[in-house]
Design a protein around this nucleic acid. Structure first.
Lengths: 168, 168
DNA sequence: CAGAAATACTTGAGCGTTCAATTGTGTTGT
DNA sequence: ACAACACAATTGAACGCTCAAGTATTTCTG
């Protein structure tokens, strides 16, 4: 293996600033959501993703892929959310390995009530801090990273966009 | 409180891409570090920050501020790192509330051996995926977020830059 | 100078995430 | 048909982080 190519000053500073910003950012997001609605950000994302799905249901595997979550993590999360009545799980009859997760009306209510505060916080910590030019740049930067880090990554995109918009 | 201003399509897509990219990115980083050196990323950062400090020591409070860590988190981390012999803690004689943390030679060794793989990974997941123009943009974007989210934030910047560069 | 407040740090409980192992079910190859 | 394999999901232990509470020590204030 060759010599390590260390980060130069500019890279170092970029890296530090980026790391710090991201840390603060998702600390703020998680704190706001937990405080105002009792949901960790990851759990909010689960509900949000389900709310958009056709029939408001998805298989565990597909949901995990969409959220870039490990199956295990999703399974633990689903156990908690099911215990709180926000989702429901049942085996698919024609392939009994598969579990289908469905968001319940209760889950939808929790999501609807959490969404405004969350979106407000997303604006506060991200969009309000950037010019619209920077927002465009950030999008391209994020997509560059994504295509390098997760070439196979799935996106939702359903034929019928019926559901509400509590995405994040 | 007024009507919620929802994210428009562009904002939504930016936000999703950003969130996903960041998630994958620090998953990759943490996994690489843990696998190759047994250190979580946050612990690596502690050692890195100490290694750069004058005398390779800092107070707990100052270290926590530099890393944007809660005192509690740092205290737990320090307990583990001390148990592994990577740092040493002692009370400052003239203000016995204050604890000084010092990185040990063992800690330096661990850091030195972890650094090349880590830097390589940082390149792989971040710098290699971006054009140099994008790197510049990312830096400004990160600094915008920082100045909005953490106006008081401290930076290291010591008068005498003697230490090695295992920063991140 | 005593009491109150501020500062520095630590502790323990609770929780989400990870990793490795496990269970149950379907698919393939011979 | 049956063994081997692949796939979907779950489980439990380990661990780091958060939050609230607690202990020392120092500084401020009347």
């Amino acid at each position: 293996m060759g010599e390590t190519r260390w980060l130069d000053d500019g890279e170092q500073q970029t890296w530090r600033a980026f790391l710090t910003a991201v840390n603060l950012l998702d600390g703020a997001l998680d704190r706001q959501l937990r405080h105002d609605s009792g949901l960790p950000h990851a759990y909010y994302q689960i509900l949000a993703m389900l709310s958009e799905a056709p029939g408001r249901e998805l298989t565990m595997t597909r949901l995990a892929r969409l959220l870039r979550s490990s199956p295990s993590r999703l399974s633990h999360a689903a156990a908690r959310l099911e215990g709180e009545g926000m989702i429901r799980r049942f085996k698919r009859p024609d392939d009994r390995r598969t579990t289908i997760v469905e968001i319940t009306p209760e889950g939808m209510k929790a999501l609807e009530s959490a969404a405004p505060g969350h979106v407000h916080e997303v604006r506060r910590v991200l969009f309000d801090t950037l010019s619209s030019e920077q927002v465009g740049q950030l999008r391209e930067i994020s997509e560059s990273m994504l295509s390098a880090l997760d070439p196979q990554g799935e996106e939702p995109r359903y034929p019928d966009p019926d559901g509400a918009r509590y995405q994040d």
